[in-house]
Simulated assay, not measured.
Amino acid sequence: MEDYYAIVHNDFDGTASAAVYARAVGYLPKNTFFTEPTRLHNFLNKLELRGVKKIVLADLGANGSTIDQVTERLSWIVSQGVEVEWFDHHVWKQEWKDKVTQAGVHLYHDTSTCGAGVVHKVKNPQDEFSSKLASADCSVDIWLHNDPMGEKLRRVVENSPDYSWKLHLVETFFKGELWNDEFQKILEDKIDEELKGYKKLEKYFKVIDIDGKKVAIAIRWRGPPDISYASQYIMSRTGAVVFVSANGKSISFRSSTYEIRRFALEFGGGGHPLAAGAALRVPALHRFFRRIGIRKFMMNWVTTRVEQAVKKAGFQEYKENRAMSQ
């Protein structure tokens, strides 16, 4: 039995990926680390191997501004006799793939599924439990919304940001428990909180018309409901085909019918065809007014930029086969 580290994204998909991999090899990692793609280079530079002979990275996309630093460090890690496997589903440039493989890394890249889905396909496609976990995960991670268990588990995973909670989830999934009494109690409490929160949403969003299609634009709020659940609620209620939210530092796009990654690219971002985002720093004065409860200035500023980006990129219906080939 060979000790390994699992380094995964700090979300449901990362957690599920770590669990699916552990089930595939039959044992848990020596340590599981949760990080963000933009911080991967710094994390790797500080990582001490301590006799570990394998490192598994999952659900961590490549970043053009840090890929050279990442591959340089991975090349050194491989030179120390450590095997590195990287599983990911985000959009990569071919040159990034080439750099990673040239560093000696075993790269498994598949944009048709989520991170846990890639691990499942490669490592243990016959494991029924991993298939169920990956299905639930993909349903919410890449905005397919085709598995009700995904909505339930996402609330459970996001119940706490604590490291110990994520480790507990990895261990629970590793043992083959998809749902239990603990999860049920968390879900019930979360739903109660969300139902109270839906009543306050009206003042945080507006719907505009862009090229004959409704687009809902929201300024982030504190507390439940989560922005993902709220987006579905708002789109269903208003007939909007695209949902946009901004928090002052970033912007995110969601849709069930249109490829919104093209809109995020206009802001220098990226993501999945139906769920994407980018950095968008709102002027300090508008953020100040928002903090004291006046949202109209920030809303108007964000709306102008969204209109410009959407009109420039244009609406394109989501086609699964096209998205899989990107």
Rank of each mutant, 00 (worst) to 15 (best):
K99R: 11
V100F: 00
V100A: 10
Q102N: 13
Q102E: 08
H106D: 14
H106V: 10
L107Q: 09
L107I: 11
Y108C: 05
Y108H: 14
H109S: 11
S112Y: 01
T113A: 02
T113L: 00
C114P: 02
V119T: 06
H120A: 05
V122Q: 10
K123H: 03
K123E: 15
P125D: 01
Q126L: 13
D127G: 06
F129E: 03
F129T: 06
F129H: 07
S130W: 03
S130P: 05
S130L: 02
S130Q: 08
S131Q: 04
K132H: 09
L133H: 08
L133T: 05
S135T: 05
I142E: 00
W143M: 03
L144C: 04
N146L: 05
D147Y: 08
D147A: 09
P148K: 06
M149D: 09
G150L: 07
K152T: 04
L153F: 04
R154E: 14
R154G: 15
R154V: 12
R155F: 01
V156G: 01
V157N: 04
E158D: 15
N159I: 01
N159G: 14
D162L: 15
Y163A: 07
S164I: 11
S164W: 12
S164F: 10
W165H: 15
W165C: 07
W165V: 12
K166T: 06
K166S: 07
K166Y: 11
L167H: 09
L167E: 11
L167A: 04
L167C: 12
H168M: 15
L169I: 10
L169D: 13
V170H: 00
V170D: 00
E171L: 05
F173G: 10
F173W: 08
F173A: 12
F174E: 10
K175Q: 15
K175L: 13
K175W: 15
K175F: 14
